[in-house]
Computed example of a mutant assay.
Amino acid sequence: MSPDARPHKIPESVLVVIHTPQLDVLLIERADAPGYWQSVTGSKDTIEESLVETCVREVREETGIAIGTAAVPLAALRDCELVNVYEIYPRWRARYAPGVTHNTEHVFALEVPAGTPVVLAPREHTALQWLPWREAADACFSPSNAEAILHLPRWLARPR
């Protein structure tokens, strides 16, 4: 592998739906696909990285929100116990090893206080918006992301 080559992405990722107690949902627009609105997503960095570690890292990288602080404690992150397996869009398959066509996505929800500051990673995302949960689901380009947002009220009603 040349020094400039990036390793292949691991086809196991997290989807983190960030929301307020009032169920306003944070959506971020992809830099590489204008008009594609989504929640925080990201692949594991290593096979050994836990899903919670992946969530903490990706949320911080993509939004600047630090999970594990007084404002956003680790307990605010909820495993929704939903796993999606989907075909990777052809435009993004080159990021994975040859022959990899599907990704396994684990869904989490993260409750943050209203007004939580968000700082986007400009190479990854160009804009953000907070929308009521139904509107956020309608705005997502990814069917699994939209489905996760629509399930949010039900997940939050379950005891931990």
Rank of each mutant, 00 (worst) to 15 (best):
N103W: 01
E53G: 13
E48A: 15
S39C: 15
G115R: 09
L128G: 10
P143I: 08
R134W: 00
Q38W: 01
T126L: 11
T41G: 15
L77W: 02
C140A: 08
A148T: 01
L51F: 13
E87G: 05
R30L: 10
W130E: 09
R123M: 11
W92P: 01
T63W: 08
G35T: 04
A109G: 06
Q129Y: 01
F108E: 06
T69C: 07
P122I: 02
A114Q: 13
N103T: 11
E105W: 04
A121T: 11
L82V: 15
T63M: 11
G99Y: 06
A71D: 15
E87A: 14
T54F: 06
V56W: 02
R123N: 13
T126P: 03
V100R: 01
T104C: 10
S144M: 13
P34H: 03
W133D: 09
R154G: 13
V118S: 06
V112W: 11
T69R: 10
G68D: 03
P122N: 08
L150E: 00
C55G: 02
T126M: 07
F108I: 02
V85L: 11
S142F: 12
A114G: 09
P132Y: 00
C80I: 06
A70S: 12
C140K: 09
C55L: 06
R57Y: 08
T116G: 03
Y86N: 13
A146I: 00
R123Y: 08
C80W: 13
V72S: 08
Y36A: 14
H106I: 00
T69E: 09
P34W: 03
L120D: 07
